[in-house]
């Protein structure tokens, strides 16, 4: 497995498109963890202008342990498309350069080839989760008023859930990439599916009362694993934990796309 990861890293490290997309993603993660507080402070100053004393948005414990874990993972997962693009690029390029064929001729089996991409997806997910964990730790330590070890790590399992969400999504993007093989079209399909198809299907079906729709749309399933945490700051009840049916749906999609992606590559002539 280390051999496959090493091969994959050698392929992408010098690639400019990969570097640009990956650094954009890291910067975006960083921004979430840094920008919200100044924004709240800006809101506060505006409220003061309007002479609305008594409303102080900065007391919202967005960055405080343990709330921070659910908050930042819920926001961060919405950036997953950026990372998905870098992976789509790396897999569709293999088809357009025909390097997948040469890799197989050189002595990689078709299965090893696609597993090297999946290992890379796992590596990217873990690296992002680790990065987010470090950012969360730092911001949490800065903004939390009374720090205790128990509070710090309470709910930090959201980071692991984040890694799972990201990994499932990346395996889904690999599937799209392998299926379509053309980078621009694959990216277009991914955007269209994620932003348009799923949203329309979801909106329509929930309107009609079919709430199970969230379980059969892959990207929605991934997103709904962590629920929106913010309404709790206006005293509404939110689900601040993970449920087994929702986790099961994500794991099922992961297994499905893992199997389908490998099968697509192994069965096809190169």
């Amino acid at each position: 497995m280390m051999r496959l990861l090493r091969i994959e890293l050698q392929k992408v490290r010098p690639s400019r498109s990969f570097k640009v997309l990956a650094s954009m993603y890291l910067v975006a993660l960083f921004v979430i963890c840094v920008v919200v507080m100044p924004f709240l402070q800006y809101l506060k100053s505006r409220f003061e202008d309007f002479d609305m004393d008594g409303i102080d948005p900065t007391i919202i414990p967005f960055y405080e342990f343990p709330d921070i874990w659910q908050n930042i993972t819920w926001v961060a997962i919405h950036l997953k498309l950026l990372l998905g693009f870098s992976l789509i690029f790396s897999v569709t390029n293999e088809f357009s350069y025909r390097t997948i064929r040469q890799n197989v001729i050189d002595g990689l089996s078709q299965k090893e080839f696609i597993i090297s991409k999946i290992v890379m997806a796992g590596f990217l997910s873990l690296a992002s989760a680790a990065f987010l964990f470090v950012l969360g730790m730092i911001t949490g330590l800065i903004y939390t008023s009374d720090i205790s070890l128990g509070l710090m790590f309470e709910d930090s399992y959201f980071i692991l859930i984040f890694a799972l969400q990201l990994f499932t999504f990346l395996v889904f993007t690999l599937f799209v990439g392998v299926l379509i093989k053309k980078s621009i079209i694959a990216m277009g399909v991914l955007i269209f599916w994620t932003m348009v198809v799923e949203n329309i299907a979801w909106g329509r079906m929930t309107y009609l009362g079919y709430d199970w729709i969230g379980y059969v749309l892959p990207v929605k399933s991934i997103n709904q694993l962590v629920h929106v945490p913010f309404p709790k700051y206006v005293f509404q009840e939110v689900q601040d934990y993970i449920t087994f049916p929702e986790l099961g749906a994500v794991l099922a999609f992961l297994a499905l796309f893992y199997w389908a992606t490998i099968r697509l590559v192994v069965k096809r002539d190169l």
């Binding site: 010098p14 690639s15 400019r16 350069y97 390097t99 064929r101 040469q102 001729i105």
Partner: peptide, 10 residues
Amino acid sequence: LEHPIFYPYL
């Protein structure tokens, strides 16, 4: 096989 195949950006 056929023409040389490598990663052009490497």
